[in-house]
Design a protein around this nucleic acid. Structure first.
Length: 398
RNA sequence: GGGGGGGUUCCCGAGUGGUCAAAGGGGGCAGACUGUAAAUCUGUUGGCUGACGCCUUCGAAGGUUCGAAUCCUUCCCCCCCCA
């Protein structure tokens, strides 16, 4: 498949106007491809990586990614992917969130050939009059046509006027950066289309838009910082690997398509293998390795895979066990668990012990009040398979 | 401005004087099973205590009562209808 066709179809739900964009690509135009990112959390996740990877594909064909950091819009809050209002953020919060963005984006894009813009530069100084002119371009009925607004309206949930304003801001961003194409998730369709109207009203040629499928997180909901179900680009290799392994089996191929740069043919082959009875776990291991390899490096990915297999398939202990130093003396198992940070509270520790989830030196212990002496001999304490610590009264290494 | 309906534990959502730390679902955590941290099933899900039990929680603040998430007062917030 030639690069332009792949560009226009891989992971793509809609391309408007498909024939227009295709023509410009074939003509060899150098296009400005816009992607807006609102700093709603400090970590970019694989859901965000979907359009970033597409941006990378554009970049590889010689086009210019224009990243609009929504330091203004992020504070206002876009509700388009939610069935409830999104709260407004403070300036400090937004600034803290976006501090690490460029580094994370740099794991995907070649930052030498990227334009970065901050939308507070033009949205901040805008006057009420200008806002009124923008607002005049849309009717209330149009706004309510948008399905998630209509749904909330019907259900009697609150929709604030400020949420109506959001698409105007995002749309104006396109004018400000003179976007030729804008990328976004399916949930962004309305905002992306608003950009076209607003550009038209500013005597610019309307941008083409491309939308992508939403990425499901491990809990079945859309991957979103708000839901806390994200796999972050910057997650350490082991964590990233583990989180991928926790995904539902049915998501494997979609993840390959949307969050990796694996060639399509390879994905097709894998689809066939799975149909032919390949254990989904094997496919998922490949996926996890692919993802960690992409956002870290292949060596990290291989090592993460080894450690995963060691801990979860062989049920062996990891090679490196964190050491916790506690004051010498007697303590109950319940208290020890909490003190060592393996349980968030003593009550929770008690529950874990009674539930049979706690092992001391490899043995399951269910006696909550078991007396233990913290001393120079290390104690191996485990909660489930993931939480492990070696307890000593002073550093074991000398 | 007038009338009506609401604000419950991480989320959704029951509960209308004691049997409520509060049904049910979701999510989380743990267990079983498993060539996955998948699926499925089970348990658990405010804090403190070895335990009896105690403390904090049902928008906020007061009050009634032996006793309140449940009744009263004031306040804050949300939704709908009418104007």
């Amino acid at each position: 498949m030639n690069p332009i066709d792949e560009l226009l179809t891989r992971g793509v739900t809609q391309a408007i106007d498909r024939s227009h964009i295709e023509r410009r690509l074939r003509e060899g135009a150098r296009l400005r491809i816009k992607l807006g990112i609102d700093p709603t959390g400090p970590l970019l996740h694989l859901g965000r990586a979907v359009p970033l990877l597409k941006l990378r594909a554009f970049q590889d064909l010689g086009h210019l990614p224009v990243i609009v950091i929504g330091d203004f819009t992020g504070r206002i809050g876009d509700a388009s992917d939610k069935d409830a209002e999104r709260r407004m953020l403070g300036r400090d919060e937004v600034e803290a969130n976006m501090a690490g963005y460029l580094g994370q984006i740099g794991r995907i894009l070649d930052m030498e050939r990227v334009e970065i813009a901050y939308n507070s530069d033009w949205l901040g100084p805008m006057t009420f009059e200008e806002v009124a002119h923008l607002a005049n371009l849309f009717s209330v009925a149009e706004m309510l046509d948008r399905e998630n607004f209509f749904k909330r309206y019907k259900e009697g949930k609150r929709i604030s006027l400020r949420e109506f304003l959001y698409p105007l801001m995002q749309g104006y961003d396109s004018v400000a950066v003179r976007a030729d194409v804008e990328l976004g998730g399916n949930d962004q369709l309305f905002n992306l289309l608003a950009g076209r109207s607003i550009q038209r009203a500013h005597a610019q040629e309307p941008q083409d838009i491309m939308t992508f499928g939403m990425l499901e997180g491990s809990d079945g909901r859309k991957m979103s910082t708000t839901y806390g179900n994200i796999i972050a680009i910057a997650d350490p290799p082991d964590e990233q690997f583990g989180k991928v392994m926790r995904l539902k089996d049915e998501l494997i191929l979609a993840y390959f398509e949307l969050t990796t740069r694996a060639p399509r043919q390879r994905i097709e082959d894998l689809r066939q293998s799975l149909r032919g009875g390949l254990n989904p776990m094997e496919a998922k291991l490949l996926l996890a390795e692919e993802i960690v390899g992409l956002y870290h490096c292949p060596e990290d990915a291989r090592a993460a895979r080894e450690r995963f297999l060691q801990v979860f398939r062989q049920r062996e202990l990891p090679d490196e066990i964190p050491e916790v130093i506690l004051p010498e003396g007697p303590i109950t198992l319940q208290a020890l668990l909490a003190e060592a940070g393996l349980a968030p509270s003593r009550s929770e520790a008690g529950r874990l012990i009674r539930g049979g989830g706690v092992r001391l030196n490899g043995q399951v212990v269910t006696d909550v009040s078991l007396g233990i002496t913290v001393g120079p001999t290390p104690l191996l304490l485990q909660v489930g398979r993931r939480r492990v610590a070696r307890i000593v009264s002073r550093p074991a290494r000398r």
